[in-house]
């Protein structure tokens, strides 16, 4: 699925023009990016959350030359799927058997 298909779906289900649907879809994703830039965390119930994760610096290798390089510390956007989304994708194929192992509860 691409953004264009997402826009088409939005326009099909709502009464909005494609142009207007595009603006809305863009607004949603841009707002998420902007919030992370402000240092905010985004929590979308039933879907998941976005936040910034700190990656430590590490030694890596240039895969082409094999040469050692320093990979600097950096911040990366991170998405954590919500409970509902996790359950949904695990249900879709194997039915209930795909569910996560549960420890025995006292």
């Amino acid at each position: 699925m691409t953004k264009a298909e997402l826009i088409e779906e939005v326009s099909r289900v709502s009464d909005l023009t494609k142009k207007h649907s595009e603006i809305i879809v863009d607004t949603v994703f841009k707002s998420i990016i902007n919030a992370l830039h402000r240092g905010d965390k985004i929590e979308l119930r039933g879907f998941g959350s976005f936040r910034i994760r700190q990656r430590e610096s590490r030694k890596g290798r240039n895969p082409k030359t094999g040469e050692r390089v320093d990979v600097p510390a950096k911040k990366v956007p991170y998405f954590k799927p919500g409970k509902e989304l996790k359950e949904l994708i695990n249900q879709s194929q194997e039915g209930l058997e795909g569910a996560q192992a549960q420890p025995q509860q006292d």
């Binding site: 991170y78 998405f79 695990n90 194929q93 795909g98 996560q100």
Partner: peptide, 14 residues
């Protein structure tokens, strides 16, 4: 601390 098997499952990555 009890050991258990985590069944194969799917996850979403971004």
């Amino acid at each position: 601390g009890e050991e258990m098997t985590i069944l194969p499952r799917k996850s979403v990555v971004f």
